[in-house]
Write a protein that binds this DNA or RNA. Structure first.
Lengths: 197, 197, 197, 197
DNA sequence: AATGAATGAGACTTCATTCAT
DNA sequence: TATGAATGAAGTCTCATTCAT
């Protein structure tokens, strides 16, 4: 019986966050009004506010979800394709990015730049971003260490530095895809491989 | 007399954009109100509105300026340090980024994620971003072509792909620096060099 | 069985009014929300609404109870200490006021000014106030008449006028105690006695 | 030129406070909405909010004005009718109360109970009430001291106590007039005189 | 009878923009 | 031409009340 309530709450929260995400995808965080979210969610104002204390809390929840998606995907990647070269890990990640971007219902990756912007002036969004990106970079770090153990990568270099680069390529890819629109996991990893000589 | 007026207009516009940029750095695009900009610029509401038709125009001007800074720097880089390896070009760019970020008056690079976010839902910001980033990537493309001519880089790979990667590393660095705060041009290029074997 | 139900209803109503009174004491009539009352009463929203048709009805019940307290006390005063001089009646009343004000659970007299304010714009609260205060003033009138019969007070003056003054001193005392905080039954009656020469 | 602005500001503030007072007289503090005040003042929402930061600030301004009126009147009373017996001072005060209550535009004294209620749960209103009522009671204290010097009043009694009683009769009169509606300065002072033997 | 999630009207407040002076 | 007071649409959020379960 408490379980029903708990599940119900979670379902409702998801319903609201999804609705909000749809709005944000179309209009952006700040042009999305609570009226939009309320209408889109199919709930009443009061109901929405009983699940989230403020618009800001909804925004955080969206940012959280958006930033989580990529990091979470990594679990699958690491589990299924071990041992992974750094380049392969990056490629798998970018392919995952494209896969979720192309899901029906709108390109969710468009929310990412807004979450980044939010993090610049919103403590709670910054924390979320730090957590999620710390996690994701940690995954690249693990891959790097394994590669160093393998001898695939120079073991004398601080693996953190290498993880910084690998991780950094992800937003570099996402942003370029959203703004210039002409990058693919293929082109990107090919370019990187070429640089690697 | 027309010249004086022209210069005067330009000076005033700069005065307003600078004021607005200071506000945006502190509060973000959307929490910055016209009242903030008006106060910070030391002008009157009427005066500000005689130079910019709307808040959106000011936002675009800031985004323009913020996104220009890095691309513009490239002219100097290409001019003074030729011939440049791709890695050296990237390093020079990142060092330039850090230099402007550390200028007194606040880290201007904090505006970049906001400009990216804006581009997601604002045609004119998107155009600006496409132009500026097209330009910047073009510079990396030039560097790449030269390196391919040199034989430093595999000439069989589409240089666009390589430029995508080099360019992509810039926002990857900026964002990581702003959110996780632990990357330096040194660490980043060291990491990349290590990957390059 | 009907009696049990009746008692049960009364107990529940009291439970709600007490809870509401605690809230009102802390926050005032208008900042007290039904959610506060519901939480404080330990009942459900539906339960509360089955005992009171509206918030206004609860407010009236509190006002009623608050204004009744003093008037009711008079019964005891008149019964036990006859014959009473007007000054002694006033003193006994003020002492009663202080006694209930100092009861644990918060100073109930703080509700009085709110009931007065409510009476200014709420017919039903006005009626209650008129009833209760008519009653209280009536008690002072009775005391006055007895004093006039005794010869203690000038019998040629309309006793209503004297009752007006005696009664008027009660809110004058309560308000002064709540706002300026430095009156006591002792100081007040001493002052009045001095005026009486 | 600054003077014009200053006067203009004051005039606008008065315009708003007067409008708000008319609303509060009709509907009470809490049923008065900002929309009411805005409509009644003939200004726009933005204009009203440029003179007062919040509804609460307007409420305080009304309370301030309402509580000031009586205390201020005293200056005139003390100046014109010296030396005053305590009874005469009280009578002059009550007559002043009735005079302002009967001014066209609604009985302003109806605001007093609301200001008292507000003071129970609003620090700033409490301060105002303490100030204004401290002042008024101070006037009664001065009158008392003079009477004690004259020998009209027993000089051995703490004049503060007597001032408490004289002052207390004012809200006692106001409230009774508003709720029971049958007191006059005549009846009240006659009653008090009779008590005084 | 009891519950408490849901409702939705309406409250307060902000802020981009205009225009009389 | 410059000013800054004024505008008012629109935004966020609250809360008395209801009703399906």
């Amino acid at each position: 019986m408490p379980k029903v309530t708990r599940e119900h709450r979670t379902a409702r929260r998801d319903q609201i966050v999804s609705a909000a995400q749809r709005c944000v995808n179309e209009r952006g965080f700040h042009k999305t009004t609570m009226a939009d979210v309320i209408r889109e969610s199919g709930l009443s104002a009061g109901a929405v506010y009983s699940y989230f204390k403020s618009k800001e809390e909804i925004v955080s929840a969206i940012a959280d979800q958006a930033l989580s998606t990529i990091a979470e995907s990594f679990e699958g990647i690491l589990a299924t394709e071990q041992p992974l070269t750094p380049l392969a890990a990056l490629r798998a990640t970018l392919e995952h990015v494209v896969r979720i971007a192309e899901q029906p219902g709108g390109d969710i990756t468009r929310v990412a730049p807004q979450a980044w912007a939010e993090a610049m002036h919103n403590e709670s969004s910054l924390s979320i971003a730090q957590d999620k990106y710390g996690l994701l970079r940690g995954h690249f770090l693990a891959v790097t260490r394994r590669a160093q153990a393998d001898g695939t990568v120079d073991p004398d270099i601080d693996p953190e530095y290498i993880a910084q680069v690998l991780f950094g390529l992800v937003p570099g890819f996402v942003l370029q895809r959203l703004i210039l629109g002409d990058v693919t996991p293929e082109s990107f990893t090919t370019g990187l491989a070429a640089l690697l000589k």
